[in-house]
Each structure stands twice: as C-alpha cells, then as structure tokens.
Design a protein around this nucleic acid. Structure first.
Lengths: 353, 353
DNA sequence: ACCAACGATTTGAACGTTCAAATCGATACT
DNA sequence: AGTATCGATTTGAACGTTCAAATCGTTGGT
C-alpha cells in the first residue's frame, strides 16, 4: 500500500505531461477514444492507469453545466415501510445509474406539505439535472412545476392527471392480478375472491379491475367475494374473515398487497385452514414477508423499471413524446405454497410470467 | 410564473453587479455574513432573493476540493428487506444531511465480493468526501482501506475488528432486550424465554446477553428457555413452537427480531393462545409488521444515530480519538398488546425508554 | 500631524475539466 | 505544382466559485 502524505490528486495535466500529449488528447482518450490515433490511445491509457487518473466530477460538471445526477425524493410515508418496494427500486436505480455515468441523489421534502422547494433547491444549485418521481398521485403538483421549469424527469408510476405526459414507467397491476386469477383457476380453486384497499386509490382500482375482468371471463365473477380493508392488520383480519367465510374452503383470495394477505393468513391460521391446501392465497409485491410465510405473490420488475426510467432521463425524452404513452410492464407471478393444493405441492419456488 | 426561454443561470457576478459590490462580498454574504457590514448585507441579500441566486455546488466543490457529499453503500442483501432498518436510516440520514450542507450519495458494490473498488471510485472522482458505513462485520475490509487512504468515515454499527477505531454509533441491543425483560417481568409474565439467531452473529449475541444477564438478575434464568432459528419463517416456527411449549402459558418470549417474533406469533395462533393475555411476545426493530400485529418491540433511535454519524463526519473525527469509544444508544421499548395481559390491556401505543 | 491598527471591501489567481477554434502534417484531387 | 480535404492534435477560453493577499478609508494613540 503506497502511502504518500498529503499527495496531490492526479489531474488531467499530470497525465498529459507524462504521456507527452496535450490535456485535450487525454480528455479525448477518456471521453471519445475513437478520435485518438491507436498508438497515442495506448500510450495515454497506460499513463492513466499507471498514475491512477480519474476525472474530477466537479470540474466536468462545472464546464458542461450538467451535474450527471438525478434526484429522487424519499418520502418517509412510503419509503422504508412494509409493503412498499421503493427501497428495492432505489437499489436497482442506484446500481444501474453507474452505466449511465450518473449518480442518484436522494433528498426529502423541506416542508411537510409542499415538496416543490426541495426540487427547486437541487435544480438551482445544479446538484441534480432532473428527477425520478415516485408516489405519483392525483393532484400531484410536481409534474406541472417540472414541466414549467423545463426540468427533465421520469416517473415510476403513471402520471394520472395528464395523459399527454408519457415519461413514466409503471407496473401493470391488472395484468398481474389477472395472471394470478388464471393461475388459481388452473390450480383448481373454484371461488376466487378479492381483498383490496378502500377508497379510490388508482393503483388499487387498477389491480381490482384485473380480478373483476378475469373472473368474469372465466365465468366466476361474484360481487360477494370482493372486499376491502386498510393495510393495518387489526382491521384487515375482520374483513378477510368475512370474505373467507363467504367463499369457504376450496376457494381462494387475491389481495392487493402482501400486507392484506397477511391479514387473511392470520384468519386461515385461526380457522385451522391449511394454507394452499384448504384455501388459496395470493399477495402483491413479493415482500420478504411473502417468502417468509410461503405466499404466492406478484413481483414487480423493478430492475426493468429502473432501466426504463434512466433511459428516459438519459435521452432527455421529457418534452418530446416518442411513444404514444408511458411504459407498462407486467409483474411476475411467484408461485409458492399458498396457491398450491397439497397433491402437487412443491417446496421449491418457481417463477412464471 | 416567470418564463424566460433558455435563461442563463444566475451567478454570483450577476448579484455582485446588481448590488454594486464585488463577487467576494456576495460570497461572504452567503458564507460568512458576520464579515459584511449590516447595510451591505441587507442590500446584497435583497438582490440574492430578487434574482434567485443559488451558488453552484460544482464550482464550490472544485475550488474547495470537497464535494460536500457522503457516500453510503446500499447492499441488496440488507437494504430494502424485511426486518432491516437501513431504509429508515437512509431517510433520516438524508433529511439531516441538509443541515450539514451535504448530500448523501448512495452506491452499490461493483463486484459481488469486493466492495472496495466502489469506494475507491467515489473518492477518486471526488464525488464523495467520505462514507457512512453500515453492515459492519468481522473481517470487513473497508475500515482498514479507508484508514490507509485517509478517507473520513463513520459507521452505523460497531467496528468489531479494531477497538482503536471510535468513529461509530450503534444501538445497545443488550440494554434494549434487558428493558424488554424487565417490562415483561413487571407485567407479570413468569417465565421469559429467548429466541435468537443461530451462529455467532455479534449483533445477535449482544442482544442475547441482555436477556441472559437480566433474567439472571431477576432470578428467572433458565437455559431451557433459549432457542435460535434462522429468519425464514418455515424454520422459525418449529423452534418457536418448542420454546413456547416448554415455557407454557403465562410465559413470554423475547425475540432477536420482529421476523422471529412473527414465527412465534404464528405458533400462538395455531395453539389458540391469545397474544399478550396468554403469552407475552416482544420483537426487535419496530418494523411495520410489529405495528400490524400489535407486537411490543424495540425501536432503534435511527434519527439520533444519523445525527451522530453526520456530526462525526462533519467534524472530521476520523483519525483523532475524541471519545474513548464509539457511541452506544439505547433503543426504545414500544409497548403494544403482545406484552399486555388482558386485565390492563390498552389499545393505544405508548413508548418508554 | 504622523502612523499603526482595524474593519470593510476588492483584486488576482486558481480549482480541473471540456468546448470551440486553430494548427499541423499528410494525402488526394485537379 | 498548387490547393482543398482530412485526421490528429493543440491552444485559448470559459464554467462559477473561494482563498489569500491587497487596497481603501477611518479611527485612535502619541
């Protein structure tokens, strides 16, 4: 380990001097190697490696007037909480940002009820070039503000208010739930119910429609098998109990989230019904909880979402509409014991689309 | 909303010209207001507000040779997973970093088995000035590398290998479990068991010691009441079942994590034992799951941890040992129904230290 | 009346890179 | 032979800030 006290950082000029070329040539070797003659390229590259030169991001940012970073707002309501997948999304985004020669800058809102100043701050001080939006919702002030200030962004989640905005990627909840219903029907469950969230959350409604349509297609629809409950377990259990009793053994329940499925799971345990064997259960999001209790669930393709988001940001597809709408990706059905009747039960996980 | 197409960013010179002072005075107004005469201060400040001037972080970074950012490695093994609190920690860290005029830069390892190059990368390109370490473990190569390269860092988690390093903050698991045991004893539970992780995880051992010591102090110790199990529920349930059957109704179980407690909870449901009333249960980490099932648990003081970590980084207390050891903070016991016998059961949460 | 000391402000230079334009030499075209 | 073209490389300038040193005007001491 070479230790030199307070050694100066290696700059582009050091390399230029060592390789006997100009700074610009070194810059080209790093950023546009095709412009450099092969002989020179090799020599300069060798010096870069030998000296351990790495361009200063700050200098590059200053000159180019681009930070090479995307901001993402962390909301303590939805981040780091059970049943949300934003944590995993952030990891995927972070991992993939490197290939785009960019960094991810997390931040939180300055004020409880107004997210915009935090966005403004990052743009004004040129710390982020644009943003990854999550938790898009009706009445969201952010897309309008970003558009008005010509700040690039891409959203994980549909921009519900403005169909003209196409820079979003989302997961097709309806398609996922539909796949779950078909899977349950194939496994022989006869009555397939739905446990969703109350209110008119667009995400919840999207997923519920997948259930409603597919059960109708299969000739299974029954309004009595649909219920809703808040995420809190003490309230989910009673709703789930009512549904489970109505549907009865041999039936199954698809839930809008793994958290709701946990409520149903509790009821099955209390009723002495064996998971999968006596009653089918499917959740949504593939949280660790699902793996823990052997719950069949729908896994969101977060890596793919992150890829698309970064591509949209990288190509600056903000104002231009290159596709007629955003991108909708299907989730993956992860089959576990909770949707496998005893006869052909298997302990190994398998995934299908 | 003033819209000017492709408007130039407002720089320090624009303000200087508008306020009829030099750039340096504007700089002083922003960074060292006490050096500026009150009259001038007001005038310049007014122009700053009027023009909407915000210093460019890149220019500042370039000149000062400090990025004003701390890196944090996101490890998909431990981040975004059930039972870990790193997600919440990141939110706290991000929120608090603003007061320190710094940003948090998340990143992931470049190679599966060697985290160092990713750290090297951020330092070499001057994107981060130092790091927040998490998941510190035996044989961790990072502290040594950082020390050798004089890179500042502070850890959330003890540096187990090297007692001479004091730039860490950790949560006192033993003290937390001890508080839980005392609480259970006060509530009248007579036999108090322990469900931990297998192997010699230092974190798990720390927590187990809290149980062992405190039960001994209270004259309750019994080796038969301690068991261990991996986090996976299908394996946790049998271990928990054996313990619960040994301890019997009227007893209680403290678990090394909320995940393990979930395994015990499942067993209680299957046995028809009422949570809290017939059998006490305490988890660790206060995940959303704990709130969902009414589980008493130990909440880590993540905001305080984040504060200390940032302070250590900010004051550059890396090499210097200003305190004889790192900082150990006690977790907070969050009492819920699972440790409250029926007679005085209350539905509202309360927290005690 | 001189000069030291001080507070407030300004000036010069530098941080490390990339853009745009200029230069240089060799090759190809008329 | 003259010149346009092209590829490879170099040069000048700029991005926006802060550090260190210089300047200016006042005040106070002798």
């Amino acid at each position: 380990m070479t230790k030199r006290e307070a050694r100066r950082r290696v700059t582009i000029n050091d390399v230029a001097r060592a390789a006997d070329v100009s700074r610009q040539t070194v810059s080209n070797v790093v950023n546009a190697p095709e412009k450099v003659a092969p002989t020179t390229l090799g020599r300069v590259q060798r010096e870069i490696d030998r000296l351990g030169f790495r361009p200063s991001r700050a200098a590059k940012t200053l000159k180019q007037e681009r930070a090479g970073a995307w901001g993402i707002e962390l909301n303590s309501e939805t981040f780091g909480r059970f049943g949300t997948i934003l944590d995993t999304f952030l990891v995927e985004l972070t991992t993939r940002s490197r290939r785009h020669d960019a960094h991810i800058v997390p931040f939180t809102a300055h004020h409880e009820n107004d997210p915009v100043p935090a966005y403004e701050d990052l743009v004004a001080s040129r710390i982020a070039d644009g943003f990854v939006l999550t938790d898009t919702r009706h009445g969201d002030p952010r897309p309008a503000w970003l558009r008005d200030h010509a700040v690039p962004y891409a959203a994980f989640g549909r921009i519900w208010d403005d169909p003209s905005i196409t820079t979003w990627v989302d997961v097709d909840g309806a398609a996922g739930v539909s796949a779950a219903v078909r899977h349950l029907a194939e496994q022989g469950y006869e009555r397939i119910g739905w446990l969703g969230w109350p209110g008119d959350s667009p995400v919840g409604e999207d997923r519920r429609l997948g259930w409603a349509r597919t059960t109708a297609d299969l000739g299974l629809a029954n309004a009595d098998w649909a219920g809703s409950s808040p995420q809190q377990l003490e309230r989910a259990a009673p709703s789930a109990a009512a549904l489970i009793d109505t549907i009865g053994p041999g039936g199954a329940l698809v839930c809008a989230s793994d958290g709701l499925a946990l409520g149903a799971w509790q009821v099955l345990l209390q009723r002495g019904l064996r998971l999968g064997t006596d009653f089918g259960l499917v959740g949504f999001d593939d949280t660790d909880l699902a793996a823990a209790i052997g719950l069949t669930t729908l896994r969101q393709p977060l890596a793919a979402v992150a890829d698309h988001v970064l591509r949209m940001l990288g190509t600056g597809t903000t104002t231009e509409a290159d596709s007629p709408a955003g991108i909708l990706l299907p989730p993956e059905l992860v089959v576990r014991a909770s949707s496998t009747p005893a006869d052909d039960r298997t302990t190994t996980e398998r995934g299908t689309t």
